[in-house]
Design a protein around this nucleic acid. Structure first.
Lengths: 222, 222
DNA sequence: TAGCAAATTAACCGTTTCGTACAAAGTTGT
DNA sequence: ACAACTTTGTACGAAACGGTTAATTTGCTA
């Protein structure tokens, strides 16, 4: 019937980077969908192009794999953020664009949101163990610091609103929009999650953030 | 040494309601801490005053227990919310108080927040199965609807901001403040989570919400 | 007070699940 | 050619884990 050797092992290429990338991609989906405890190593293995043995070969154990997935999730979104160019805009326009971008960016990366939710359930203990994530996040707030500095130098931004607070507010609304969509929509309906609803929320977010940053006498009453 | 009969089965009282309450309380803590998959039935049983068998006797299986915990969590916070009395206040003052209250209320109920996070990880499928939760939540937005109606009738609130949107914004910031505290503080430090930081966030939330609800020409420039 | 359903206890069971052992072989750089 | 690294495949062990069986006590009520 078949004349290939008893084992089907001939004719493969070595590709460590590709194998790891494939495992990480599958694992991220599985962890995002089921959590750390809920994800199944056998299930992850089955969905990769490789075998369970290779997961343990490269990542040690389940927690090791989860840690790498966490790093990879942060790496992906932070990298995407860095491409945003704001220096050529006025402080207000830059702030608007940053808020809008963050809202959309989070919306485009639901798996990242879910991984962060899961990590928060675990009190952030795995995040803390990662040097890489601390480095990645160090730069996450620099754009906002630059905007605030410019806004203050121009005399139009308040002094008593810190960049970290603006970041907190922007993150809260952008994150919640994805993280709590399931329960919110099941309780209150879907109207906020269609195209118009999302646009309205985003516009309000921008409006609120700008109003918060500006000195009262600089706020337009448009 | 001891003269009790060989089995320790004598001398107990029947207390169905108390036993169930005890199980639910323990289970809520465990599910909040470890998630649905992460929580262990043996661990829950060990921390109750009763036995594992009783859990299955009253709640059927793990998912049944989780569903009841979910209901109980919603019941507790929604009941607390209902005690807030707003009708005697002006629309603006009522809105301020509601926002402040929500911020503090969420802060006081971290286990509820965590249960809702977990339920969102599971896409809200268990929430959907609960008639009770739908009933509880139906009233959750009525206070805001009343405030908005009064504000519009007085001519000071905008027409293009719906109650549900205000609710969304208030919830987002109040929820995120608890849900993402672990990762946020590990990345950016603890400064926002001390007494002063929390107060500042809360004040900004109130400020932003009021500004969003009011017509532009009604916003003070204080 | 006998009977019976509800409540409770303790020990047990079968499956799932993580991780490993074992055996073998192809690939790649030096 | 050689050695280290990478990949395949299967089977399996030990512990964890969800759930059950069987027997006993309590308390209501006829």
């Amino acid at each position: 019937m078949d004349d290939k050797p008893a084992n089907g092992r001939s004719g493969w290429k070595q590709n460590p980077a590709g194998v790891q990338k494939n495992i990480l991609a599958v694992a991220m989906t599985e962890f995002a969908a089921n959590g750390l405890s809920g994800a199944r190593m056998d299930e992850i293995a089955a969905k990769t192009n490789t075998s369970k043995r290779m997961i343990y070969y490269y990542f040690g154990d389940k927690v090791g794999l989860y840690g790498r997935v966490l790093e990879e999730a942060y790496r992906q979104v932070r990298t995407g953020e860095q491409e945003l160019e704001l220096d050529h805009l006025s402080p207000v326009e830059a702030l608007k664009l940053l808020a809008e971008f963050t809202f959309d960016h989070h919306s485009r990366h639901p798996d990242f949101i879910r991984i962060v939710m899961i990590e928060n359930i675990h009190q952030g203990v795995y995040l803390e163990q990662s040097e890489l994530i601390r480095l990645l996040n160090a730069g996450a707030i620099q754009k906002l610091e630059a905007i605030c500095r410019r806004g203050r130098e121009a005399g139009i931004f308040r002094d008593d609103v810190a960049p970290i607070e603006l970041h907190w507010h922007i993150s809260a609304m952008s994150f919640f929009n994805v993280s709590n969509r399931a329960t919110f929509s099941r309780i209150f309906g879907n109207e906020l999650f269609g195209a118009e609803g999302q646009n309205s929320l985003k516009n309000h977010l921008v409006e609120m953030i700008v109003a918060l940053a500006l000195k009262p006498d600089r706020r337009s009453r448009r």
